[in-house]
């Protein structure tokens, strides 16, 4: 037999109430235990520091790779003069990007 409209409404309200009856009135832990905001801020700061450190390291690595040391430049100049007769010092300076050629 089909229940009446009001009967279904009543059963529905009772079922919903019973379904949530065992939920406690207070949260199991305090909100402060999550400490989301300070943790997020610290994490943010750490991330910025990490990115800055990476940028500095990449810059140093690029500079050291792009500019050979004085010893390497001298060795390069000697090899160049030996293998390329007649090369001017100006050309060497240009090749090695050295303002005061050996």
């Amino acid at each position: 037999m089909r229940p009446s409209y009001t009967e279904v409404e009543g059963r529905l309200a009772r079922s919903f109430d019973a379904f949530v009856a065992d939920i406690p009135d207070h949260p199991p832990v305090a909100w402060s235990t999550f400490s989301a905001a300070p943790a997020r801020r610290n994490h943010h700061r750490q991330r910025i520091l990490g990115i800055a450190a990476s940028v500095v390291l990449i810059f140093l690595a690029t500079v050291s790779w792009a500019s050979p040391s004085a010893g390497a430049r001298y060795h390069g100049a000697v090899v160049l003069r030996a293998t390329t007769p007649g090369i001017s010092r100006l050309d060497q300076a240009h090749l090695f990007r050295n303002p005061s050629p050996a």
Binding site: V20, A30, W31, S32
Partner: peptide
């Protein structure tokens, strides 16, 4: 921040249960 967190703590304590009950009924999944 402290003022806001104090208020959120109070709101959380007062509103957690009604909101969990409402969400439970809406989703039927505790």
């Amino acid at each position: 921040t402290v003022a806001a967190w104090g208020t959120i703590e109070e709101i959380y304590r007062a509103q957690w249960a009604p909101l969990v009950r409402l969400a439970s009924v809406l989703t039927t999944d505790r």
